[in-house]
Design a protein around this nucleic acid. Structure first.
Lengths: 149, 149
DNA sequence: TTCGATGCAAATAGTTTGCATTCTA
DNA sequence: TAGAATGCAAACTATTTGCATCGAA
């Protein structure tokens, strides 16, 4: 939404041993401008408007690189494409499997469950990796049958 | 593992208005025999051993039908294929994103979080739809960097 | 005897990869 | 100027679909 420190991200890239290219700059600018979790395709389309030469494959490769460096993260929605967002974003995404609405829920709602799983199984739950699916307020009313996907 | 009431599942199918075919019988028998969450491919391979004529597409269509009827459910592991299992199984799967180990955790561990999400957002969380990713006891030791997928 | 189910092949969606070329550090 | 990053096309994986045929109810 608002202009953000692209330079900080680029510096982090460089610090991590990666190279700062114009394609990566454009991709990060778009990611910041869009401001919300986006599919690789939507991100690529946005980048394309200014830089038609930047290929989809580069977007994927850049997102992978950024993921490995911990700068961006992605969640899977099941059948659809993954959603990418800046890793600084600590909220959990509740996604309605019916209408697609995305709700940002604070991490803290799940901290107890995460703790219990750790205690019981020694398993470190990472809820940021996947979307948390379910039904939003509107969709759970009057729709008992026929769960998709 | 052990022999199970295939007939009960077939009866449920019939009761739901679906037809009982030899392909569906074979698929359900395999699903019961395998006894654990399986990919469509692995299930199809198992079915193939006895019934080489049953096509992959039929396995997918049958799984979809069974899902719609609530008899089976599936979880997504991210990049890989979905895992299908009998819906009667109420446990949640913790999947190590590093070594792939699958841990069955009781639903109850998450009931509080589910409740809180409901209270706060009116959102009905369905944790059975996705695998819960993280790191198992072994893998979280000595591996701080480089989270895959 | 009528639709639902199937087999087959082909299409599709999303993502990855090989390779020659380009550009950053 | 070495090696990382890119563009492009092609491969790939998981899944879906169109269509003619078959078979359960």
């Amino acid at each position: 939404m608002v202009e953000q420190p692209v330079e900080r991200l680029l510096a982090a890239l460089r610090a991590g041993g990666a190279r700062v290219t114009s394609a990566r700059r454009a991709i990060l600018e778009s990611l910041l401008t869009l401001g919300a979790p986006v599919t690789a395709e939507r991100l690529a389309a946005h980048v394309h408007r200014r830089r038609p030469d930047v290929h989809q494959a580069t977007v994927y490769r850049t997102l992978e690189r950024l993921s490995n460096m911990g700068l961006v993260a992605h969640v899977h929605l099941g059948h659809g494409p993954a959603l990418y967002h800046l890793a600084a974003d600590r909220s959990r995404r509740l996604v309605c499997e019916r209408c697609g609405e995305v709700i940002d829920a604070p991490e803290s709602l799940f901290s107890e469950a995460v703790h219990r799983v750790d205690e019981r199984f020694g398993f470190e739950l990472r809820l940021d990796h996947f979307a948390l699916l379910g039904r939003c307020r509107r969709c759970r009313i009057g729709t008992e049958a026929g769960a998709p996907s």
